[in-house]
Structures are given as structure tokens and as C-alpha cells.
Design a protein around this nucleic acid. Structure first.
Length: 573
RNA sequence: GGGCGUAUAGCUCAGCAGGAUAGAGCAACAGCCUUCUAAGCUGUGGGUCGCAGGUUCGAAUCCUGCUACGCUCGCCA
């Protein structure tokens, strides 16, 4: 809103004060009837030694008539409230960024800057469960946000395809694996033997050493272990592809941890050359006392690498490959400490972009009575959740619209069902844990993706009818925005005005929920408008046109918000 | 024990670079479909903003202490 800037300038001029003081003081009142901007005069009262409402009324006099867009001002308590002329406001918002022509809230400041977003990153040979949805869906939304502002985004899936756990898996497979079962359903079979491994560990502790040995051999590329591992990896990737197809997510790189294994010696050399490596209890570590962090383990006492060393090697590789502007990790909050250590080691090693590496943490998905655990076989598969959601959606569509052809029903149900799941992972602050509940996941009313999609479809429906009767399209400049001065209309316009700010804030804080909140509020505001006004049967053609433009721009904003979140905007549902 | 995080309506969450009566959704109750999609809308009830201090004209928001829960603190990732 440019109004704030102009207002601050006039206030500053009239009082002979710094403009920035007023700019900082001016705020948006909590309620629409308190105006569009407000100046709390309490702080000024202290300096000027005058009562706040006296200051407010003096300022009211001084600025009167100076700003064309200012409809009126009012003194309430110690506040000076400013009311923007609604018709002019509507005009500015609707025509300035009239949606029909471009993606609202988009920008190009990211041009030429490459942002790497690492997300999803499931472990191979393990089921893709609901817990992975968090990283996958939040990561995709963040990648979309960056793209929306013009950044060149590379989506990286840092597969968990390496580490001692695969030594353990090989051990488990050799003890209990079945070829037939593997051919039938690889992930289930691999998971079965892996779970068994942990069950057996109690009576058979030497299994642990066996696993470590096999991993050591894998890292030395011993043929038997390597071939087995490669088979497991290929089978897993095929299974993951199905999920990513369904979510319409395409990665630019699927290089897993294993890829960095042979790039670690160079890292070790570098750290050693800088005198950073120390021996401690037989392992090689980097001391991070000056960062108030525990030492970072680089090499295990058996000489094998560990995840920290692989992550460090990956940063160097990524920068050489992509010359990144930012390197973002969408990885769970429990790994905060790990990333602090990795970034600190990079800093110590003199890597110039250490501060451009960012860990975007998110909460844990858990059951009311405990955590998801692959080892205990206590998980819900993402695919099962999606299937359930789509099935429920299908029933609703068929009830509402019995005449729709089956094919159409299936297509809509897929979009809405998947969208509903996406939205539950995106709508709240990402650092909050999600307690899994079927009821909450499959609640399609109120603040949910289907609600947003429904509102979008509603807008589309109206525009379709307007087109059919020949009133749409027309030049948006024709409309008389005085017809959009009502409370319901202004609420919509305010939210559209705030969309770009919401996108930018969401990007800055890597928090898609901030953007989605605006979209959700817009949908609500539109539904209120829809229920209180007749659009196609408005009192006259001029009013109808104004309302149609409001509908069309709402449609465009809703689509933008939904698509950044990765949710389909459907014209019918 | 050290570090990080969380605590707001019965439930799920916004609000937290201090500001005007603390907001949504769900659930509950009462209404609105011969008219643009009722996955919608309107209304009602529901709050010691974890506890105790402090700073301030003003604190859910800032500071200190405490409590509860979660995560984390080298050879897993």
C-alpha cells in the first residue's frame, strides 16, 4: 500500500519530524471500522508533553484536504484513524495489479540467482510414509515460492541411500530375505527384514557389528555388497517415482548421500590442511567450542564416513555445480544441531557461502500416543492416506453432482483428495508437530484445500455463465469502482492488496503458511460477498460488471495461492 | 545437567519488530437452498493468552525466574 508512505510524508512535513518515525508508528487497525491506517499518539505525547488525543486532533486539522485518497480522519482515544476512499482503493488494487493479465504477487528480483532446495529425501528400502510428506510438501511449496519471485530453483532429493543402516539391511537380507517377496513388493520385503533386524538385536547383539562391517565393505565397493545395495536402491527409486508422479513433483537431482562418498577425501584434506581436524577417542573431529557447539565428527574411528562429512562434501559439490545463491535444507527439526555443526565447520574451513546455507526445520508427524517409527512398523503410508482422501472426495462429488461422467469424477477427486492432504501439511507454522488423525486429515470443511478449491470453482462458474450470456470478457477499466465500496467488497480488495506482501513474507521466513493464510482469508471474504450480493443478477449492468471484475480477480489470486502450494485449481467440482 | 523449541477457546491453530473489546476453523446449538455450485453463508455460547515477578502510559507480544511437554548433546541419519 503506497498510502502509508504518502501519509507518513505529509505528517512529517506538518510536524517537522523525521518521516521514518511516522512510517514506523503507522499501523493497520485491528478492525475495518477503525479505518485503514491508524496513528497511535501515545509515544508522541511523551515527547511533546501533550495529551494523545489533543495531538491526534491537531494532526487531523493539519493534514485535512492534503491527500486526495483520504476520505476522512477520526480521533478515537489516543488514535488518529485514517479512512481511505474505497472507490479509489478498489481502483488502485484492481487495475494496478489486475489479475487477468499476470500472476499476482509474482516478481523478478530472483533473476539470475540459483536457489537449491533440498527436500523429501526419503531413505531407500523404507516405506514412504506420512512423515515424509512434511519435507516433500513444504519443500515443494518453498521451491515454488522462490520460482514465483524469479529465482532459478533446483530441486534436490538428497536420498538416504548410504550409511551404516544399509550395512544392517544387507545383514538382515542375508539372514532372512526372500527373493520372491522382493520381486513382488520390494519395499515391503526390505522393510520386513529391517524391522526383524531390530527385533533380533536384543538376543543377538553381534548383528550390530555385522552391519557396520558390511557398510565398511560397501564403502570400499566390495562387489557383493555393492551389487546388493544397488539393487535395493533401484527398486526403491521405482517405488518413489510413483509417489512423486502423483504429487506432480519433479526433481532436478536425485543424487543421494552415496554420491558424495568419494568426494570426502578432498574435504578431509582441506580440513587437515587448515589444521582443523583433531583426533578424539580414535575419531577425527572438528572442534567447535568457539560456536558453543559440540565437536563435529568427520571420520569414525574405523575410518568410515558419517553423515556430517557427506553433507559437507555435498555443499562444495553443489556450489561448484550450481554456484548457488542459497542452499536450503528442508529437513526435520531434530537435525537442527547437525546443521549448525555442518555450517560451522564450513565457516571454519573458510567457505564463503556458509551463511547462505539455511536449515528450514519442520515438526514431527506423530500419533497421539507416540512417534512414527519404521523400525517398529508403526507407520501410515502416504499413498494410503492419499487413497483414503481421494475415495472420500469421490463420494462427495457423486452426491453433489450425480450427472458428472465417471472420468471427470475421478480426475476431480484425485486433485481435491491430494490437495486436501497437501494443505494440512502447509496451513500451519511448519515447526509445529502434527498429531496424525484421520478425522483432521479428511476434514473438507472450513479452512481446508477443498474449501479454497470450491471457492475457486464457484468463481469460475460465475465467469463461465457471464461469458455464456455475452457480458464477459470486457475491459476491466470500464468498471465503476464506486460499486465496490461496500464492506464485503472492500474486505476482498484488502486481501488482494496484501497478497504480494504475504508471498514475500512467506519467502523470507520460508513459511508457506503465511501466504496460504491470505489465500484462505480471501476465499472466506469472497464467500461472504457471494452470499450477500447477487453478481449476475445485480441491480444494473454497471454494478454487475464491477462485481464480475472482483470475481475474476479473486479467481486469479486464489489460483496463484493454490498453485504455489501445489494444489490444483479446478474450474468445476 | 547444557542447548533448542513449544505452552492462547473443549479440539486444531493464527496473532507475538508492545497498542484500541485477544481472532479463525472444527465440534455444540439456532437459522438460510423455486434465484449465480449449501465442500457455502448468518447468528449464539465458549478465554486467569502455562505460573510468578519485572519494564512500560499500555504486555498474549519484551526481560527474569519457575513448571510441563517435545527434540537434541561424536562414532545412526
Amino acid at each position: 500500500m503506497h498510502y502509508k508512505d504518502e501519509l507518513a510524508e505529509v505528517l512529517a512535513k506538518e510536524t517537522d519530524t523525521e518521516k521514518s518515525i511516522f512510517f514506523a508508528l503507522l499501523e493497520i487497525p485491528p478492525q475495518a471500522d477503525m479505518g485503514d491506517l491508524a496513528l497511535p499518539c501515545f509515544r508522541l505525547a511523551k515527547e511533546l508533553k501533550k495529551a494523545p488525543n489533543l495531538i491526534a486532533s491537531e494532526l487531523k486539522e493539519k493534514i485535512s484536504g492534503q491527500l486526495a485518497w483520504l476520505q476522512r480522519t477520526e480521533v478515537v482515544g489516543g488514535y488518529l484513524n485514517f479512512y481511505v476512499d474505497p472507490a479509489q482503493y478498489a481502483k488502485a488494487v484492481l487495475q494496478n495489479g489486475f489479475a487477468g493479465s499476470k500472476a499476482p504477487g509474482s516478481g523478478s528480483e530472483g533473476k539470475g540467482k540459483t536457489v537449491l532446495v533440498e527436500y523429501s529425501s526419503p531413505n531407500i528400502a523404507k516405506p514412504f510414509h506420512v512423515g515424509h510428506a512434511f519435507s516433500t510438501l513444504v519443500g515443494e511449496a518453498i521451491a515454488n515460492l522462490y520460482e514465483y519471485r524469479g529465482y532459478d530453483v533446483k530441486r534436490l532429493n538428497h536420498l538416504g541411500d548410504y550409511g551404516t543402516q544399509f550395512g544392517k539391511l544387507i545383514a538382515a537380507w542375508r539372514h532372512w530375505g526372500s527373493e520372491e517377496a522382493l520381486a513382488e513388493d520390494p519395499i515391503t520385503e526390505l522393510n520386513r527384514v529391517y524391522v526383524k533386524f531390530y527385533r533380533e538385536l536384543g538376543n543377538n547383539p553381534e548383528l550390530e557389528d555385522e552391519g557396520r562391517l558390511y557398510f565398511k565393505r560397501l564403502e570400499e565397493k566390495a562387489p557383493e555388497e555393492y551389487e546388493l545395495w544397488k539393487l535395493f536402491r533401484d527398486l526403491s527409486l521405482k517405488a518413489f517415482d510413483k509417489i512423486y508422479d502423483r504429487l506432480d513433483i519433479k526433481f532436478d537431482s536425485m543424487l543421494g548421500e552415496s554420491f558424495y562418498s568419494d568426494k570426502i577425501p578432498a574435504v578431509i584434506d582441506r580440513l587437515r590442511a587448515m589444521g582443523l581436524l583433531e583426533e578424539s577417542e580414535g575419531a577425527q573431529v572438528v572442534n567447535l567450542d568457539s560456536y558453543d557447539l559440540n565437536p563435529c565428527l568427520i571420520l569414525k574411528s574405523d575410518g568410515a564416513t558419517i553423515y556430517a562429512s557427506r553433507d559437507i562434501a555435498a555443499v562444495y559439490y553443489r556450489d561448484e555445480t550450481w554456484d548457488f545463491y542459497r542452499n536450503i535444507y528442508v529437513v526435520g527439526a531434530p537435525q537442527k544441531n547437525h546443521f549448525q555443526q555442518v555450517f560451522a565447520v564450513l565457516k571454519e574451513a573458510g567457505f564463503p557461502k556458509a551463511d547462505q546455507c539455511i536449515h528450514v526445520a519442520f515438526g514431527t508427524v506423530r500419533f497421539a500416543d507416540g512417534i512414527f517409527s519404521t523400525r517398529q512398523g508403526n507407520v501410515i503410508l502416504l499413498n494410503d492416506l492419499l487413497a483414503e482422501s481421494v475415495a472420500k472426495t469421490k463420494v462427495i462429488i457423486q452426491n453433489n453432482n450425480p450427472d458428472l461422467p465417471m472420468e471427470e469424477v475421478d480426475r476431480i477427486a484425485e486433485s481435491v483428495g491430494v490437495g486436501a492432504v497437501r494443505y494440512t501439511f502447509l496451513r500451519n507454522g511448519r515447526e509445529r508437530d502434527i498429531v496424525f488423525s484421520w478425522d483432521d486429515m479428511l476434514d473438507f470443511e472450513g479452512d481446508s484445500a477443498p474449501y479454497l478449491q470450491y471457492t475457486f470453482a464457484r468463481c469460475s462458474s460465475i465467469m463461465r455463465l457471464a461469458e455464456a450470456n455475452g457480458t464477459w470478457p470486457f475491459d476491466p477499466k470500464e468498471i465503476n469502482t464506486a460499486h465496490l465500496a461496500g464492506e464485503e467488497e472492500q474486505a476482498i480488495i484488502k486481501l488482494q492488496d496484501g497478497f504480494e506482501t504475504a508471498v514475500l513474507e512467506a519467502l523470507d521466513s520460508h513459511e508457506p503458511s503465511i501466504m496460504l493464510r491470505n489465500t484462505s482469508q480471501l476465499a472466506r471474504a469472497f464467500n461472504r460477498f457471494y452470499n450477500s450480493r447477487s453478481i449476475l443478477h445485480a441491480e444494473n449492468k454497471e454494478v454487475m460488471k464491477a462485481r464480475l471484475i472482483l470475481t475474476e480477480s479473486t479467481r486469479t489470486y486464489l489460483k496463484a495461492g493454490l498453485e504455489i502450494a501445489g494444489i490444483d485449481a479446478l474450474d468445476r467440482m
